[in-house]
Nucleic acid binder design. Structure first.
Length: 640
DNA sequence: GATTCCCTAAACAGAA
DNA sequence: ATTCTGTTTAGGGAAT
């Protein structure tokens, strides 16, 4: 996916040299890329693009008319069937003289113009238009132009077929003329032509397809081929004929078949999908007829088009905002290198080396977009162009310091936004085995898991652990045995593993030595998930603060995020204490013997885990409530 | 350079 | 006998 996108971008670049015929490729590819990537342009002016696009189409039509009127170009072959179809088309083409591009632009630019106002305005235009309908004679002229376009289209289509081996054309064979074409354009193709020429046929479609429209192209032929090519995939093969970017072939082909297969964005299930229409059309031909008759370029259609345009625009704005939010989230959660700057030096947590490694491992860039997409894993998430593939990510070998562990970043908050990513992408999670094991355990309903259940959690949560089972399972067992924080408890159904959070926190606290925290907080519960404090700082402070939680004198009110991280870390322990106090009395006696409850106000401690729970274990959410009880046992003797 | 942390590999034993 | 589970040791890489 990512590679494809990248390659395509490259291909497009190279195709730029290929003249107008490659514009369609740029258009399609550009729109796809634009939508899947940063979409910096989408927010800029979708409407403007449409304006320009429509202007372009209108101007092109005009120029075509002028050209033909002056040159007296005649249609190579009159086609009755096509002629009948041309009527509405020609009418539509005449409208540029009725509604000038400037006027059209005005209409379109008036974002605040109400449909009623627009309607009134267009009615005026209509009056003028009626006067000029007598110019219908020019329809024939334009029809000729259409035929020329058809020729180009069909020739390119044939070239496409030739390339596919469906048709064999000897090298010396002269290019096909329209007369020699096996058959005329299908109604769908003609419709496409009309659609493209009018430029307002389907705004949504236009918005999508024209995301990368090069509006700088003004000459008639360029415009014509551009619009035609983007509508009719065969054109893109014209560029292929020129020896360009074969990578686009497949995609184009598929779309080509779709479009020529009597499918239409405005037609489905026997119903015209024009906004507010829903007229029943027996077949595609009838639909086309209906489309030409009922949805020609008139005031009503224009108004509807504009409405649809706004709908699309709103959606794009929304998408843009959501994407921005996602980016911010990822930046916040992954791009530690830029964040830790303000991090208190005493923490001594910043390691450029580690960070860079972490970046390579978990930076948003590496996130597939949605691995779902691979999804990118899902994520679905449409991801911007990424140069880091999952393969390259895990190929870096064993990661010593999992940044989340190192910085005590809540694993949930780390995984949550990338859950689908880790679930689908073969990328090693940036956590130590101990951290993961703990997470698996505390996520469980009763805070205890058998070894096999831990295995399952690993494979279920991370695609990476679906392979090399022997290695990581051994590591899991090794960690369970090695770390005191993991306590084996004999259960009715066998041995289960629990987490001794005191030990766990103790161990982690030891990682941060020589730091006398001056900032420890009183945890404001109201602080939200989106607290601004960067996670690493939060985590560091949180961890550092653990021993001090019981000492009110050392507790200062600071930022929210801090508590968040603290909560997360504490949650596990507290949860563990709470739940296991009953379920597994035998484990880790000390934690139950003297649980010093540092009673903070009930915290929304699970903000970090909520996202995770939403996508992972359904049974996790219900526990959030009990998780909020913070019972930390931060007595100094335990910490040290 | 020493220490620590983490990972990986492997040997081994006991239980299922 | 095989597999699973659990423990332990060893060594290497990376960070501190």
């Amino acid at each position: 996916m990512m590679q494809e996108s990248a390659t395509e971008t490259i291909s497009n670049s190279s195709m730029n040299q290929n003249g107008m015929s490659t514009l369609s490729s740029q258009l399609d590819a550009g729109s796809r890329d634009g939508r899947s990537s940063g979409d910096t342009s989408g927010e800029v002016s979708t409407v403007e693009l449409l304006h320009l696009q429509q202007q372009q189409a209108l101007q092109a039509a005009r120029q075509l008319l002028l050209q033909q009127q002056t040159s007296g170009l005649k249609s190579p072959k009159g086609n009755d069937k096509q002629r009948t179809l041309q009527v509405p088309v020609s009418v539509a083409m005449m409208t540029p003289q009725v509604i000038t591009p400037q006027q059209m632009q005005q209409i379109l630019q008036q974002q605040v113009l109400s449909p009623q106002q627009l309607q009134a305005l267009l009615q005026q235009q209509q009056a003028v238009m009626l006067q000029q309908q007598q110019l219908a004679a020019q329809q024939i002229v334009f029809q000729q132009q259409l035929l020329q376009m058809q020729q180009i289209q069909q020739q390119q289509h044939l070239m496409n077929l030739q390339r596919q081996g469906l048709i064999t054309i000897q090298p010396g064979q002269p290019s096909l003329s329209v007369q020699s074409l096996p058959q005329g354009l299908s109604p769908a193709e003609i419709q496409q032509l009309w659609k493209e020429v009018t430029g307002v046929h389907n705004v949504e479609d236009s918005v999508l397809k024209h995301g990368g429209l090069d509006l700088s192209t003004n000459n008639t032929t360029s415009t014509t081929s551009t619009t035609t090519s983007k509508a009719s995939p065969p054109i893109s093969h014209h560029s292929l004929v020129n020896g360009q970017a074969s990578i686009l072939t497949t995609r184009r082909d598929s779309s080509s078949h779709e479009e020529t297969g009597a499918t239409h964005p405005l037609y489905g299930h026997g119903v015209c999908k024009w906004p507010g229409c829903e007229s029943i059309c027996e077949d595609f031909g009838q639909f086309l007829k209906h489309l030409n008759n009922e949805h020609a370029l008139d005031d009503r259609s224009t108004a509807q088009c504009r409405v649809q345009m706004q709908v699309v625009q709103q959606l794009e704005i929304q998408l843009s905002k959501e994407r921005e939010r996602l980016q911010a989230m990822m930046t916040h959660l992954h791009m530690r290198p830029s964040d830790p700057k303000p991090c208190p030096k005493p923490l001594n947590l910043v390691s450029s080396v580690t960070m860079s490694k972490n970046i390579s491992e978990t930076s948003p860039q590496s996130l597939p977009q949605t691995p779902t997409t691979p999804t990118t894993p899902v994520t679905p998430v449409t991801q911007g162009p990424s140069v880091i593939t999952p393969a390259s990510l895990h190929s870096v070998g064993p990661i010593r310091r999992r940044h989340s562990d190192k910085y005590n970043i809540p694993i949930s908050s780390e995984i949550a936004p990338n859950y689908e990513f880790y679930k689908n992408a073969d990328v090693r999670p940036p956590f130590t085995y101990a951290t993961l094991i703990r997470q698996a355990i505390i996520e469980s309903s009763d805070r205890q898991l058998t070894l096999n259940e831990i295995y399952n959690w690993f494979t279920r949560t991370f695609a990476y652990f679906r392979r090399n089972a022997a290695t990581w399972k051994n590591a899991v067992r090794h960690n369970l045995s090695l770390h005191k924080c993991f306590v084996r408890v004999e259960n009715v159904k066998g041995a289960v593993w629990t987490v001794d959070e005191i030990e766990y926190q103790k161990r982690r606290s030891q990682k941060i030595t020589g730091y006398v925290p001056t900032l420890v907080k009183n945890i404001p519960t109201s602080l939200g998930y989106g607290a601004a404090l960067n996670a690493s700082l939060q985590a560091a402070l949180a961890e550092s603060s653990l021993p001090l939680l019981s000492n009110p004198s050392l507790i200062n009110t600071t930022s929210s995020g801090l508590l968040q991280a603290t909560h997360e870390d504490l949650n596990g322990s507290l949860d563990h204490l709470d739940s296991n106090g009953n379920t597994s009395p035998g484990c880790s006696p000390q934690q139950h013997i003297h649980p010093i409850h540092v009673k903070e106000e009930p915290m929304n401690a699970e903000e970090d885990e909520c996202p995770m729970s939403l996508v992972t274990t359904a049974n996790h959410s219900p526990e959030i409530e009990e998780d909020r009880d913070i019972e930390e046992e931060p007595s100094s003797e335990d910490v040290e």
